[in-house]
Each structure stands twice: as structure tokens, then as C-alpha cells.
């Protein structure tokens, strides 16, 4: 079931979209903003709200990069792996980040469910390469030290809050 706020957020998007259908990506984004990712159940709820079938909506959901069809941590770290950051050796920082987070590669979520690390295409911050985003915040000119500080700050900010892990679920069901 969509919450009242989610419905309102979707409707708002419908108003500024060229057609009702056109609000589908927006609706996915709005629900993702509140739930972190789009589970099969969320997908069906949104589809129903938009008078679409789950298949129609999932076709769109699975096309876009920033719609998550599997669970992610509370914060998503997007490390730029495109050319300028690559030249500036993001791979070196990646290794550091993995150690810091205690995970073994892109796509993984920390044990406490706090961070998911994903690769990202160029963030448009090439003059400050290597760069990454945490949620909607951009960080450039990364070094090992600055990465430590950023991660630590998020940990402190979220500190006392219970770190309930997102429910695990699979993506699209295939037989």
C-alpha cells in the first residue's frame, strides 16, 4: 500500500508531466525516495496507482540506472568509474573504500545495512576527479583521508539510529 505522502508525491509529478503515463519514472523515484528501493510489492502498488500493469512499469524500472530493483543500504555511495576519475586513479580509492566499508566489491551492502557501494558513470565533476556521491551529495578531489572523513561523518550522523537492515528480496522474479 502506498502511503498518503507517496500518493501525494506521485500526483505532484503527474501534474508537471506531459502525460499521466509520463509520471511513471517519477513515481518510481518518489517511492524509492521513501523506501530506498523498489520491491515487487512497491512496483505493483505504483503500477496499480498509475493504471499500468506491473510488467509495463517494470519495463521502465529496469531500464533506468537509478531505480533500484534490489535492496540497498540506507546510503548509496556512487563512485565515479568514468574516464577522468579513472585517469586520476579512482581504482586505488576503490580499494580503500572497500576495506573501510568491509565489503568486497561494487554492488555490496555493508553488514550493518548502512552503505551500498555502486559504480557510477561520470558525475560531471571531472575537474575534481576522483569524485563520488553519497545519496545526493557530491564529493570531489577524493583522497584516502577525505573518504575516511566522509564515511565517518555519515556513521556519526546516523550513529544512534537503529540500523535496521532493509528487507532482503530478490529482483524481478523469474522461474
Amino acid at each position: 500500500m502506498l502511503t498518503q505522502e507517496e500518493r501525494a508525491a506521485i500526483s505532484e509529478g503527474c501534474d508537471s508531466s506531459p502525460s499521466a503515463r509520463a509520471a511513471a519514472p517519477h513515481a518510481l523515484g518518489a517511492v524509492q525516495a521513501s523506501r530506498g528501493w523498489i520491491s515487487d510489492e512497491s512496483l505493483s502498488d505504483i503500477a496499480e496507482f498509475l493504471h499500468m500493469t506491473p510488467a509495463e512499469l517494470d519495463s521502465i524500472a529496469t531500464f533506468y540506472n537509478r531505480i533500484y530493483r534490489s535492496p540497498v543500504g540506507r546510503h548509496v555511495i556512487l563512485l565515479c568509474d568514468s574516464v577522468s576519475c579513472w585517469i586520476m586513479d579512482y581504482e586505488y580509492l576503490l580499494n580503500h573504500l572497500l576495506t573501510k566499508l568491509g565489503i568486497s566489491g561494487f554492488g555490496e551492502t555493508t553488514k550493518d545495512g548502512m552503505f551500498t557501494l555502486l559504480p557510477s558513470a561520470c558525475l560531471g565533476a571531472c575537474d575534481h576527479a576522483p569524485a563520488m556521491m553519497v545519496d545526493r551529495e557530491l564529493f570531489g578531489d577524493l583522497t584516502r583521508q577525505s573518504i575516511d572523513t566522509i564515511i565517518d561523518q555519515y556513521r556519526i550522523k546516523d550513529g544512534d539510529r537503529r540500523t535496521a537492515q532493509s528487507p532482503l528480496a530478490t529482483g524481478r522474479k523469474e522461474q
Binding site: 502525460s19 503515463r21 509520463a22 519514472p25 517519477h26 521502465i60 533506468y64 540506472n65 537509478r66 558513470a121
Partner: peptide, 18 residues
């Protein structure tokens, strides 16, 4: 919501149409 093709003008129109 993220795809290089969203920058291509017709891909962009499709994205705008949802």
C-alpha cells in the same frame, strides 16, 4: 533516472514520456 541515452534528443523525449 540515469541513462546516457537520456541525453540523446529522441531518447530524452521517450524518457520524458515515461
Amino acid at each position: 533516472h540515469g541513462r546516457y541515452l537520456c541525453g540523446e534528443e529522441t531518447g530524452l523525449l521517450n524518457a520524458l514520456e515515461g
